[in-house]
C-alpha cells in the first residue's frame, strides 16, 4: 500500500500537477491573445519591477498597513514552499527516485516552519471568521482549501513526531499531499501559478503605459 502510494500514485500526482499547471498557464497565455492589449502592453522591466516590490516583505504600502498579516503571510508561504521541497524525509525520497539530492532543512527549523504554517493557517481561519470584509467574501470552498493546505502539514507533523501511529499517519500525509498537488492547478491555489502573470501585467500597465507604480 505504502509503496503504491509513494510510488505510482505519487508519480501520477506529480504528473497531474505539472501537466495541469502547464496546461492552465498555456491556456491562459493563449486566451490572452484575444484580449488584444495584453501582449503589446507587456514590458519585462516594469513587470519585474512590480513583482520585485510584491515579493519583498513590506515592499508595498498595503503590506506596511498590515504588518502582522505581512509577516504571517511571508512566513507561511516560505513554509509551504520550503517544507515539501527541502524536508530531509522528502529529499530522501527524491534521491531514491531520481538520484538527485539537495541540502536539507535542519530538523528544528523544519519543525518550527511546520508549526508556523499551521499557526498561520489558524490565523487565516480566524481572519475569515472574524474579519467582516473577509467573512463577507468567504465561500465554503475557501474553508475547504484552507483545510486541504493544512492537512498534509498536520499529518506530516504527527507522523514525524510519531504522536499517533506512524504508518497510518504517514499514509494519510502522503495521500493528502498528493490530493493537494493534484487539486492545486484547478483551485484558487492556482494563484501560485498566476501571481507572476497578473502582477507583471499590472506592473507593466502601470509602469510602461501609465508612467506610474503599483505598490
Amino acid at each position: 500500500m505504502y509503496e503504491f502510494v509513494t510510488g505510482p500514485l505519487a508519480l501520477a500526482a506529480i504528473l497531474i500537477f505539472f501537466f495541469g499547471s502547464a496546461g492552465r498557464i498555456a491556456a491562459m497565455l493563449l486566451l490572452a491573445k484575444k484580449d488584444k492589449v495584453v501582449y503589446p502592453y507587456l514590458n519585462l522591466h516594469y513587470g519585474l519591477r512590480s513583482l520585485f516590490h510584491w515579493v519583498l516583505p513590506f515592499g508595498a504600502r498595503n503590506m506596511r498597513m498590515h504588518p502582522f498579516f505581512t509577516v504571517f503571510s511571508f512566513l507561511f508561504h516560505i513554509g509551504v514552499l520550503a517544507l515539501p521541497l527541502f524536508l530531509r524525509a522528502h529529499l530522501v525520497m527524491w534521491e531514491r527516485a531520481t538520484g538527485l539530492t539537495a541540502p536539507a532543512l535542519p530538523e528544528a527549523l523544519a519543525d518550527t516552519l511546520t508549526v508556523i504554517v499551521l499557526l498561520v493557517c489558524f490565523f487565516f481561519l480566524l481572519r475569515r471568521i472574524v474579519s467582516p470584509e473577509v467573512r463577507y467574501v468567504t465561500t465554503a470552498g475557501d474553508y475547504l482549501l484552507l483545510l486541504l493546505v493544512a492537512a498534509p502539514f498536520i499529518t506530516g507533523f504527527l507522523a514525524t513526531h510519531q504522536w499517533t501511529e506512524y504508518r497510518p499517519a504517514l499514509l494519510f500525509h502522503v495521500l493528502l499531499a498528493e490530493l493537494l498537488l493534484v487539486l492545486l492547478p484547478f483551485t484558487r491555489i492556482s494563484h501560485m501559478l498566476f501571481f507572476p502573470l497578473t502582477r507583471m501585467y499590472m506592473g507593466a500597465e502601470f509602469g510602461a503605459v501609465r508612467h506610474s507604480k503599483d505598490w
Partner: peptide, 25 residues
C-alpha cells in the same frame, strides 16, 4: 472578455486586502 476576466476570477483568494484601498468602503 477573455484571459483577464478568467485569470482575475481564478486568482482572487478572497483575502479582502483590497478593502482599505476603497474610499467607498
Amino acid at each position: 472578455a477573455a484571459a483577464r476576466l478568467k485569470i482575475y476570477l481564478a486568482t482572487c483568494v478572497h483575502c479582502g486586502l483590497c478593502s482599505e484601498a476603497c474610499h467607498w468602503y
